[in-house]
């Protein structure tokens, strides 16, 4: 059966490496995410000071979305690109920071600038603000990458015309580990939007 929708582009960020449509487009020796994310931001000449206020999960998601969407020549106010993201650890990286600040050490106090990031969907809000997307945002938590549910959800949004395009994927930040894998689904492209194909792109086969 011919697929109705297609994957136009995909981006993967992990181990100090940025890949776009299967090609490595940037790599650094930085093992620490904070350095790597700064170098990536500079390398792609992104100019968006709010980036530096974001938590790690939002920075990671923001960078992967930036790589994909900068090639889309988005027409401000007319984009209907839904965001359907998922991961395993939710916002635990920032949750742990907020938790530290409330453990009565007396030296740190809870900060609204940290607390607001204790929700995984905040990274979707950051991307929506950056690209002026007034569209659907959904954030799911799965034990591991769940291509089937993402595929069905994106398919439904496109089929019912609730979205013109869907940016889907996985953004995980936990301890020292990070991984982003995002892909853009729409009507006119080459790669079939099937569970099998999504899995093979995710596992980099």
């Amino acid at each position: 059966m011919r697929a109705e929708f297609f994957i136009k582009s995909f981006c993967r960020i992990e181990n100090g490496q940025v890949m776009f449509n299967g090609n490595t487009i940037f790599t650094t020796e930085s093992e620490i995410f904070s350095n790597f994310s700064k170098e990536t931001y500079r390398h792609f000449e992104i100019s968006y000071p709010k980036f530096f206020k974001m938590d790690n999960l939002s920075k990671l998601a923001f960078l992967a979305a930036e790589i994909i969407l900068k090639n889309e020549n988005l027409d401000a106010d007319k984009n209907n690109i839904a965001l359907v993201f998922s991961n395993r650890a939710s916002s635990l990286d920032t949750d742990r920071k907020h938790q530290k600040s409330i453990e009565n050490s007396g030296s740190i106090f809870p900060s609204p600038a940290v607390f607001v990031y204790t929700l995984p969907n905040i990274c979707l809000g950051e991307i929506s603000i950056r690209h002026r997307l007034y569209s659907e945002n959904s954030f799911f938590i799965f034990e591991k990458f769940n291509a089937e549910h993402l595929q069905l959800y994106a398919h439904n949004l496109l089929r019912t015309k609730k979205a013109e395009k869907v940016l889907c994927g996985w953004v995980e930040f936990d301890g020292d580990d990070y991984k982003a894998f995002l892909y853009l689904v729409e009507k006119n492209a080459e790669i079939p939007h099937t569970v099998q194909k999504i899995e093979s792109l995710y596992y980099n086969e």
Binding site: F139, F140, F142
Partner: peptide, 8 residues
């Protein structure tokens, strides 16, 4: 598997 939705 449970589908967990965490969207504020």
């Amino acid at each position: 598997e449970a589908i967990i939705l965490s969207n504020a």
